[in-house]
Design a protein around this nucleic acid. Structure first.
Length: 589
DNA sequence: CTAGGGTTAG
């Protein structure tokens, strides 16, 4: 009788209704309040209750107070599976994957068998760490413990392999799954998308629809990212219509994906409409719309939004400043850019990183302020990263400062001897200076080191199908027609006054490619195809993986004039909108 | 006694 009363008493103290438990819930995952509650437990003696300790540890872990959590854990005699599972889960979902692995290992040392719940969290931690070796060991442990067919564990494993870059294994797992939930499909689609395989992501999405699996908003986030990468406006619009027709909730994440899709597919206006229609806008949404204006060369609109954000939006972060500074760089807003850069530390306590240094050098360099850019680099209190020197080199090339350019390029070749971009830039510099002997030397260096220039390609979407063109490409079905039309078009351009730019960028080509090269640059092929296959009022939209070359830039201006078409080209960095013989970048790019 | 899962944006 006495014993039973005592047990009831302990039960009451540690139940969810007990004042101690309520105090923990009120403290939440915040370390100061938690420590205060903990101190009261110690004083009152209730800290010996296992349930309370578990809750305290879990909250401390979620609060990010890992040292405190570890100390507490060591003070617990014979920690049980419930405690370990709670810690594994809390650390994994709060973004402390190293600790997840630590707790998991402790758990095994204590001879406590993991459950399917343990595994999902541990595998997620491995995915966050992209640690292929450890993840594979956990995977074999999963099989040994008999959880290989658990759909949650399978989905976690699939995500892990996709995030660690092993899409082949991820796909094998996916194909072997007996039931594929929408989450499994989402993992596979996002896996492809995040690894740069956007076409495969879209293909997977189409298969998902064939198999009548209902996509959800997470699916569309990944599909829209794929559209953004591909410049697939048609599919992107289809997704947007689907979202509206099916009354899917457009949360911040989905809204931001839509903004990004419209922006990267060339339609800033629609991007802005989506932004304006959103009822929640966080720092990522603001950054995305600022970035959108910046890459279209609308620096003033980008700055206007940035000022609105500062006035009544969330605090800008490091990524926001990358968007702001690159918008300034692409629009020649030097004064604004300098002010924004200074405000990072002064107003927001942010430390500029390499990407901000790059933006600033790029901005000053484009504006012709080479000395100021160089001075800025020299005054950095850390050794300048190669990317910073690369921006400086680009500026030297643009403004034909050979002496400084050669100096910078030689430094870059010494630091990054395997980056073909540096060789290409240096040889362009020599070509512009008329030093063809040096051009040849650099070319030979590249060949000796077996370095190849990145292969350029352009894509165009016609009737929701994406067509790919690369330089000198003759694989397309309508090749002859395209080439014939392009020849015709180029001679009309010449009649209108187009003079091909000197072939400063052709040094890296083999002899036989040289004669074709100018006429056959991928963007020209894609545009010719687009002009042939679409009706007169249609805008031609091209996506190119590299930066557009000077000659193509000039030629496309003429193309837009003589065909009376709007031609939008997205290159590696930004958009060029050609109309009536002019480009929206005002030749400042 | 104490809870619970995998997928998403710049």
């Amino acid at each position: 009788m006495e014993a039973r009363r005592l047990r009831l008493c302990i039960f009451a103290e540690s139940s969810t209704h007990s004042p101690e438990y309520q105090a923990l819930l009120r403290a939440g995952p915040r370390i100061r309040p938690l420590q205060q509650v903990h101190a009261r437990f110690v004083v009152s003696g209730s800290h010996s209750s296992r349930a309370l300790l578990t809750k305290l540890l879990t909250l401390a872990c979620a609060a990010g107070s890992i040292g405190y959590t570890h100390r507490l854990l060591f003070s617990v005699p014979n920690p049980d599976s419930f405690l370990f599972n709670s810690l594994v889960k809390a650390s994994s979902s709060s973004g402390f994957p190293f600790d997840t692995v630590f707790f998991y290992n402790r758990m095994l040392q204590c001879r406590i068998s993991p459950s399917s719940y343990t595994f999902t969290s541990v595998i997620k931690a491995c995915a966050d760490l992209s640690t292929l070796g450890l993840g594979k060991r956990v995977h074999s442990h999963v099989l040994v413990c008999g959880y290989g067919l658990d759909p949650f564990v399978q989905a976690a494993l699939l995500t892990f392999y996709a995030k660690s870059g092993d899409l082949g294994v991820a796909r094998k797992l996916f194909d072997k799954m007996s039931e594929r939930t929408v989450v499994a499909w989402n993992s596979m689609i996002s896996g492809y998308e995040q690894n740069g395989c956007s076409r495969e992501a879209v293909g997977m999405f189409n298969r998902m629809r064939e198999q009548c699996v209902q996509p959800d908003s997470t699916t569309f986030v990944s599909v829209l990212s794929a559209c953004a990468q591909l410049g697939a406006l048609g599919l992107g619009c289809w997704v947007h219509d689907y979202i509206i027709d099916n009354e899917l909730c457009v949360n911040v994440v989905l809204g931001t994906s839509l903004i990004n899709m419209y922006a990267r597919c060339g339609n800033v206006g629609k991007a802005r409409e989506v932004f304006d229609s959103m009822n929640e806008r966080n720092v990522i949404a603001w950054t995305t719309i600022i970035c959108a204006y910046g890459m279209h060369g609308y620096g003033n609109q980008a700055m206007e939004l940035f000022h609105q954000m500062k006035a009544r939006g969330p605090h800008p972060n490091n990524v926001t400043f990358v968007a702001v500074l690159s918008a300034c760089a692409h629009s020649g807003l030097v004064q604004e850019g300098r002010k924004a850069y200074a405000s990072m530390g002064q107003e927001y306590g942010l430390v500029p990183g390499v990407e901000h240094h790059v933006c600033l050098v790029d901005m000053l360099g484009r504006a012709g302020l080479l000395n100021e850019a160089y001075q800025f680099i020299k005054e950095l209190n850390q050794a300048p990263a190669p990317a910073v020197w690369t921006a400086m080199l680009g500026a030297c090339r643009m403004h034909k400062n050979f002496d400084l350019g050669v100096e910078v390029a030689e430094h870059l070749l010494a630091v990054e001897p395997d980056n073909p971009g540096h060789y290409v830039m240096l040889s362009n510099l020599y070509a512009l200076a008329g030093r063809m002997d040096r051009v040849e030397t650099v070319r030979k260096m590249m060949i000796r080191r077996r370095l190849k220039k990145q292969v350029g390609f352009s894509t165009i979407e016609v009737d929701q199908k994406t067509h790919l063109f690369s330089m000198g490409d003759k694989s397309h079905l309508e090749t002859n027609e395209i080439y014939q039309y392009l020849d015709e078009l180029m001679s009309r351009c010449r009649e209108a006054g187009y003079v091909p730019a000197p072939d400063s960028v052709l040094h890296e080509l083999e002899e036989e490619e040289r004669e074709y090269a100018l006429r056959y640059h991928s963007e020209k092929l894609a545009i010719a195809f687009g002009l042939l296959r679409t009706s007169h009022g249609t805008v031609i939209r091209i996506v190119k993986n590299l930066r557009i070359c000077e000659d193509c830039h000039l030629a496309i201006k003429y193309m837009s004039l003589i065909t009376d078409r709007e031609i939008i080209v997205r290159d590696k960095l930004r958009f060029h909108r050609f109309k009536d013989g002019h480009c929206s970048c005002l030749d400042y790019w």
